[in-house]
Amino acid sequence: MSEVTETGVPGDLARHPRTPESDTPVLEVDDLVVEHRDGGTGTLFRAVDQVSLRIAAGESVAVVGESGSGKTTLAMAATGLGPRGRGDIRLLGHSLSAVSRTQLRRLRPEVQVVFQDPHGSLDPRQSVRSGLRELRALQPERTSWIDDADLLGRVRLAPDLLDRYPHQLSGGQAQRVCIARALLMRPRLIVADEPTSGLDVSVQADVLALLRQIRATTGAALLMISHDLAVVRSLCDVVHVMYRGRVVEAGPCDRVFGTPENDYTRELLAAMPGARWRSRR
């Protein structure tokens, strides 16, 4: 038995200690522009076009749009992990263009990313345990709050998985390991880039429940990148709809999904999976 399969929220997931929450937003993005040069034709392509975004502490924000709309580029740029582009990005109040390299490395653990492909997010040559050991070596103070077995317990994995290598884990297990690794850093912001689309339908619900529960217990803010509107609806407060690099509509989930103002949003709602919930409600 390596994985607890119950989907209910267990009560043992205690809120872990953290520094007092300040009022500064976790992430502020103003007029971000990110351009890629196409290698073949040499033309400049605007992946993110004049996007502004604000995530308050503990808030849950979604960016939705079809593939190629610039969602992931936006997330990577906003967290300083990808090409940064032009525009002002402030992480916990620090402007990314102004911070030094060392400051940036100190800031980075505050933002953790969970990707679509859980196997690609783990070094294939590292067991779960040695991967965690490395994270602890990188951030000794930040990670001393919990031991490995308890950490895996929080993502509902049995401790005997610690000595497995990524290819010995199922997709759902690997994604839980990724979430555990993010959790270990006690981030203020978790970026989840299509966290369930690489998984079997049967485990998608488990992983979503886990994310929801982590949000409730740790107080971390969530930036959710998705094309699945049902997922967004169940997890997020605010949604930004992206189309061809631009945010065409933004607002509280209920408002945007209930009474969409933009034509593209309406199209999206009609075409995308999960749009049916509207009629259900």
Partner: peptide
């Protein structure tokens, strides 16, 4: 690969 981005996020 995403694990490289993940490591960078951990401050490696």
């Amino acid at each position: 690969r995403q694990f490289v981005v993940g490591l960078r996020a951990a401050g490696a």
